[in-house]
Structures are given as C-alpha cells and as structure tokens.
Write a protein that binds this DNA or RNA. Structure first.
Lengths: 228, 228
DNA sequence: GCAAAAGTGATAGTAATACTATTATATTTG
DNA sequence: CAAATATAATAGTATTACTATCACTTTTGC
C-alpha cells in the first residue's frame, strides 16, 4: 500500500494550523516528535516545552505552527481520519457487493493498526494508539461548537458519511446509519482501550480479532443480515 | 422514586476522597458547587480556586476533601454509576422476563435524565450532562492502571456486569456481553453529545427517543431477538 | 548578486494552574 | 473545660500555556 502512494499526500483542514507542518523540516520534526511523545506520555503530560527540548528547537518556534497543543491534536486526528478514508476507498475499490464493502469498512476502522507501512514520516501504529486514547478529548470540550464551525471535524464527518452510505446501499430503509457507524468507530476505540486497561468492561478472546468480529456481527445483525 | 429512598444513601469507593464529602456541610457544598460549575464551564476550565470562591471557602479547605479535581470527577462519576445501578435494580425488581429486564436496563442507561427527582442535594440532571461530557476523561489517562488497582472504577464495572448478566439470561451462548453493554453505555453518551454538537455523526428524530430506540434494537438484534 | 522577506533560535516575561505549608480562629467532643 | 478537629486566611512554589523581543540565518524575487 505504501509504494502506490509516493506521490500522494494527506490533506488536513488548514484552520488547525498556523503554518503547514508539511512545508518545512521543523514542521515535520514537530509532527514526528509529538507523535512519539503523545504515545509515550499521553496528551495530559505533553507540553510544547518538552517537545521543543526533544526535537532541539524552542517553544516559540513550535507556536509558529500550532496555536496550542489542542490544535496539534486536532491536526493529528484529522490526518488520521483522512488516512482512514484513503484506506477505505482503496479497500473497497472495484468491490461490487455492498455487504462486502461494509465488512471491509468495518474491518478497516475497528482493527488495530499493527504495521507501520508508512509512505510518509508519520508512524501510523503510534498515531492509531494516540487516536484511541486521546481523540475524544479533541471534541469533548466547551469550544466544540465554535471549532466545528471552523470545519476542524470535517475529515471525521466525511469518513462517517462514506461508511453510512455503504450501510444505506445494503439497506436503504435503515433509519440510523450515522448513529450505527459512529457507534462502531468510537466503540472500537473504547474496546481496544478497555482490553488493555479495564478488561472487565470487554470480552477479548485470544487468537481472534474480537473487536472486529463483534462490530461486524453487530452491524450486520442491525441491518438484518444474520448469517453467522 | 425519591420518597422511597429518604433513608438510603449512595456509597462511593473511599479511595477517591480524603474526607467523605457527605460528612459535613462544607463537603456537601463542594459537591453541589462542583456539579453546578462542571455543568456550566466543563472540566477543563474548572478549578478549585473558582469553586472555593463560588462556595465561599478556600482552596486549602477543598484539598482536605479531594486531592485533585480529577479525584473529584471520579467521585461524581462513581456516584452516578451507583445511582444508575440503584435505578436499574429498582426498575427490574419483580420483572420475571429476561428480555423485558434487558429492555428496561437499556432504557435506563441510554435515556437522558430529565427530572431532578433527587432524594439528596445532588442534581441528577446536571450530573448526567457532566457524565456524558466528561466521564471518558476520568479513565482515559496514563494513570488508569494504578487507579484501577485502587478500585476507583468498581462502580462502573459492577453496573456493566449486572446488565451483562441480564444479556446472558436472554442468551447464555452470547460471546460478548460486556463488550455489548459497554458499547451501549458509552455509545449512548457519545450520541447524546453528537446530537447536540456534531449532528452529522448521528440520527436523532424529533418526537422519538432515538438513542434509546437505536440501542434497544441494536442489542436485541445482536442477541437474536428481531421483533421490530 | 543583492536586498527584502521569511524562518528560526535564544531569552525573557506574564498570568494562571495545581498544588503545599503555616498559622490563627472557631467548633465540636470526651 | 481541655483537647482535638475543622475551617479560613494567607503565602509560597513549580509548572503550564502562552506572548514578546531581538538577533541571526536562509530563502526568494528581481
């Protein structure tokens, strides 16, 4: 999947950054360094001061790219959703059966990213862990309405819309496609987190990808395709 | 439901507080005041300094009850889960049918709390909104494993266990009862939040309790009871 | 090839946050 | 009534989340 894309780049809504981090070496260092640090120490303990030290730059320079660590998180999560959309479109290309497309989509958004097949400097395995643990903090704020108007959540909404459309292809009468898909995406994140930290809240069996199985069955039975 | 309980009180795991806030007037003011302020300004903007000013006390005094605002949030969410468990046990008492019990349970954990039928000083309507918007921040931290060992999440785990048991009563062979129930509870919170702030991620129709309907149908079809 | 513009680093500074410590005073209890 | 306990008042610290200034270097546009 990597080679095919050497001439492609993921676009992120430009209201989340002041200066595009893809446009310079320092910008890329900020992205690579922040992914490392967010994965290791989590969003709460992460600061621009620590990042500056790590990448051999200064706080002031980082602030020229992102106005806050919150905006940096928005950048990373948006990048991730755009990347997921790309993987989705690629995964379902030339697949004629709607139900097959739906199964592929569910698999893509629910399974853990394990290989860093990156075609860029971004480590998708680490980014996946960051999104699982921190993405909800990017919108669970009092500023969500103002930021939503600025368009910072478009990439996530577009991904949900695309998969919801596949749901409607399978069953045009289904009343809750967006609710179903956002439940699956958000739920899969929670369940991966629970499996690691609060196992009593989930059921993960060895030797099977339980989260993907569960959400695939859940989705299919919700729209009336029960063929376990 | 209020009157019946005038002699009952909700117990919260004592590792989340230094001094029980139920044991004094100041303690109760801290709880009432923090619920008001968290509902209004959100967890991120909430500080003990502001709370102290609001309730006419001091930061130092509040710190004698809770070692951090994070522990205070844990207290409030634990209280909420215990209250939910109480509502659940009351709601299913003397109901013989497992499937009816399950429907009642799903309704209780997914519908918005609209009436403050409080039998205490705690405003459950506000607390419900706080849990919807902030509860995930109480466990999405790097300290989750250490805190879990201290038992701070027992109330949530017990609620999930109780409803999972009902799922198993309906279908003893179902493989993912905990995963299903935590998906429903967490998902309902997300969907209520989305309905208010990111409506493209959900489907909420006027005149029906869409979230409860959706999760009820989802749960029943998951365990093979399709009788829409 | 050179002047202007832009990007970066170094340093300093501010207001707010998340606490801790100390002491005085008021209230409860044995 | 003495001792213990709870609270208020005040002060202080380290860290965070920024903003501002200035010097230096690199890029670019003509």
């Amino acid at each position: 999947m990597d080679l095919l894309l050497s001439r492609l780049s993921i676009q992120v809504c430009d209201s989340v950054f002041i200066k595009d981090p893809e446009s310079s070496d320092l910008g890329k260092k900020i992205i690579v360094g922040s992914i490392d640090m967010l994965d290791t120490m989590g969003f709460d303990h992460f600061t621009f001061r620590k990042l500056a030290k790590e990448i051999g730059s200064t706080e002031a320079s980082i602030y020229r790219y992102f106005e806050s660590k919150h905006k940096l998180l928005l950048y990373l999560t948006s990048w991730y959703w755009s990347w997921m959309e790309y993987r989705l479109m690629f995964g379902i290309a030339n697949v004629p059966s709607a139900i097959k497309k739906l199964k592929i989509a569910i698999r893509i958004v629910t399974e853990e990213v394990v290989e860093d097949n990156s075609f860029t400097h971004i480590n998708e395995v680490k980014l996946n862990r960051i999104v699982v643990a921190e993405a909800s903090k990017s919108y669970m704020t009092k500023e969500v309405d103002a930021e939503n108007k600025e368009g910072v959540f478009v990439d996530y909404k577009r991904l949900v819309a695309r998969i919801s459309d596949i749901v409607l292809e399978c069953d045009a009468t289904y009343k809750y496609p967006q609710m179903l898909i956002s439940t699956v995406i958000e739920g899969a994140h929670s369940q991966h987190f629970f499996a690691e930290h609060l196992p009593k809240l989930t059921n993960v069996y060895k030797g099977e990808n339980s989260v993907t199985r569960f959400y695939t069955e859940l989705t299919l039975s919700a729209i009336g395709f029960n063929e376990k």
